[in-house]
């Protein structure tokens, strides 16, 4: 099972890329852990998570080819 992660804003500075494919994760909590292992600086970054373009606030079960967006808050005006 593959999950596609797209990354916005300054989180790209941490991951070095705006798109990551992750294999074999069952839910968003597991995905967050997996990403934090690969990119430890993500642990202290703040971001909202969207599953297939819907913002989720609680742990959400994932299925093959879901697209997950990591969206940090912007303050600039």
């Amino acid at each position: 099972m593959q999950i596609n992660v797209i990354i916005f804003g300054q989180i790209v500075d941490i991951t070095g890329t705006s798109a990551i494919a992750v294999e074999d994760v069952t839910d968003t909590n597991q995905l967050v852990e997996r990403l934090a292992t690969a990119y430890p600086a993500l642990k202290s970054a703040k971001y909202a998570i969207a599953v297939d373009k819907k913002i989720v606030k609680e742990n959400t079960v994932l299925s093959n080819n879901n697209t997950i967006a990591l969206l940090p808050p912007f303050s600039g005006g």
Binding site: Q10, S44, A45, K46, A48, K57, P73, F74, S75, G76
Partner: peptide
């Protein structure tokens, strides 16, 4: 509903530090 609480100072850069 998007970002429940404000980030800490070190979690995000503002315009002056990040550029635009």
């Amino acid at each position: 509903d998007l970002f429940p609480v404000a980030p800490e100072d070190n979690e995000v850069m503002n315009c002056a530090t990040a550029g635009v």
